[in-house]
């Protein structure tokens, strides 16, 4: 009942403006870094491959994002390590 009243009075319903803002934020990160999502994905795959030579990582929990602060963009990767590879340590 209360929900019905507040809907009539137009209080809730996530505004389309916040949706616009959020979508813009995301698209501008890529625009400003001039990297396409496809390219970012390739970079991610390459990175995983290189790191896998040295350690075993949890690919499902891997976070890989371009982050934006004012007009600067940073590539932030959070890569959980499962274990170090023994054969690499042996080679050294």
């Amino acid at each position: 009942m209360l929900e019905f009243i507040s809907r009539i009075l137009g209080k809730e319903t996530a505004s389309s403006k916040s949706l616009a803002k959020e979508r813009l934020r995301l698209v501008l990160v890529h625009d400003r870094a001039s990297i396409s999502p496809a390219m970012l994905n390739r970079l991610r795959e390459d990175l995983v491959q290189v790191i896998s030579n040295y350690m075993e990582i949890d690919e499902t929990a891997l976070e890989f994002n371009l982050c934006q602060d004012e007009r600067d963009v940073a590539l932030v990767a959070n890569i959980p390590v499962l274990k170090m590879k023994r054969d690499y340590a042996a080679k050294c």
């Binding site: 389309s16 916040s18 616009a20 803002k21 934020r25 007009r71």
Partner: peptide
């Protein structure tokens, strides 16, 4: 529309474009 929350406001745009 801004009042209704269906259009970005001045501050929203300035926030994004800086």
């Amino acid at each position: 529309m801004v009042k209704r929350g269906d259009m970005m406001d001045i501050d929203d745009i300035l926030d994004i474009l800086a």
